[in-house]
């Protein structure tokens, strides 16, 4: 597949996303203006005036054209509800979701990969059965329920971790990067205060990130196990063993290198799963991220937020999968031949 073709595909998909985001949401009964000022209480003239101000009185095709044209110029419009720029709001929310999602992905990788490796090395034995049983249970977990249970156990009963939010109210962190893990070090005040704020951020992250990590952890562990088992059956592994290399050397230096290629790919492509999980996790933990932002925008028919937000989410997802593909191209010589 040529590079130009690939970019053509992505462009077509993005074009499709603009169509879906723009027209689907206008199929939803009820418009933002009526929802904003209520069905009663406003004169038809006032409603018409507000609609004209937002540009909702123009023909649909013209509105759509304007949306795409402005989006190409990097302007996603202004939220009807908050009056703020959609692009700025998106970046702010993205940072919150990224902090949660990347922490979850890191947790899932740090636990999932070793679990998969040990399961593969002890194939058929108790550890393998137990860990793979655990993995399939995690994979089947309704995380909206899991999150509630986690709150009951760790926040309410044991009182170890906070129930919701991103940081304790007593810390005055100023948003710079949007990632509180970073911003807690950039805040004014002593190092001790920064450290306290940082600890508070970690405390708030731990529970939602673990809940969000549940499904990815299972996928990564299972993928690592089956991939390593496959590689361990290859001739070159047998050759390495026959040369008299230690089992550790064979697994760690020879087999793992190839076995982890599909695992890395899966981790990269897990972004969609993370975002889906984030929508549910953010609802449970009142996390001010993308998921809650978009859901409340859909419920209040905030057209600019929905169309701009969905478009940007798609851009993020497609960019990541493209990066994964490029990465795959470089680390797996086999995929290059097919080009």
């Amino acid at each position: 597949m040529s590079r130009a073709f690939k970019f053509g595909q992505i462009a077509t998909t993005l074009f499709g996303i603009t169509l879906v985001a723009f027209f689907l949401i206008r199929l939803v009964p009820g418009d933002p203006v009526t929802l904003l000022i209520g069905e009663r209480g406003a004169s038809p003239e006032a409603i018409a005036e507000l609609k004209a101000r937002i540009g909702l009185d123009r023909p649909l095709v013209e509105q759509y054209g304007l949306f795409v044209w402005n989006a190409l110029k990097g302007d996603l419009g202004v939220s009807i509800l908050s009056g703020r720029s959609v692009g700025a709001e998106f970046l702010e929310r993205l940072a919150a979701t990224a902090e949660l999602g990347l922490t979850a992905l890191m947790l899932a990788t740090l636990v999932g990969v070793p679990l998969g490796i040990f399961a593969a090395l002890h194939r058929g034995r108790l550890f393998d059965r137990l860990s793979m049983g655990l993995a399939v249970s995690f994979y089947s977990m309704p995380i909206f329920w899991w999150g509630l249970m986690a709150i009951v156990i760790f926040s309410v009963k044991l009182a170890w971790l906070p129930v919701s939010g991103r940081i304790g109210v007593e810390h005055d962190v100023i948003l710079k990067s949007g990632l509180l893990l970073v911003d807690s070090w950039l805040m004014p005040g002593s190092l001790a205060e920064s450290w306290a704020a940082f600890k508070s951020v970690i405390h708030h992250l731990l529970l939602p990130a673990s809940v969000l990590a549940t499904v990815p952890l299972a996928v990564i562990a299972r993928m690592t196990r089956s991939s390593l088992l496959e590689v361990l059956g290859e001739d070159y592994v047998r050759t390495a063993r026959a040369k008299g290399l230690s089992r550790f050397r064979v697994v760690a230096l020879h087999a793992l290198r190839n076995a982890l290629i599909p695992v890395v790919t899966v981790i990269g492509l897990m972004l969609g799963t993370i975002l889906t999980g984030a929508i549910l996790t953010e609802t449970i933990f009142s996390w001010p991220g993308l998921g809650r932002w978009l859901v409340s925008a859909v419920l209040s028919r905030d057209y600019p937020v929905i169309q701009g937000g969905i478009l940007m989410v798609a851009v993020v997802v497609l960019t990541t999968s493209l990066l994964v593909e490029i990465f795959y191209y470089f680390i797996s010589p086999r995929s290059r031949g097919r080009g």
Binding site: T13, G16, G272, I279, L280, G291, V298, V313, A314
Partner: peptide, 16 residues
């Protein structure tokens, strides 16, 4: 068309 649907988190599509 399928790519377009898959570029969105599934629950978001379902919500819409």
């Amino acid at each position: 068309l399928m790519d377009t649907m898959m570029a969105l988190p599934s629950i978001l599509l379902a919500i819409v």
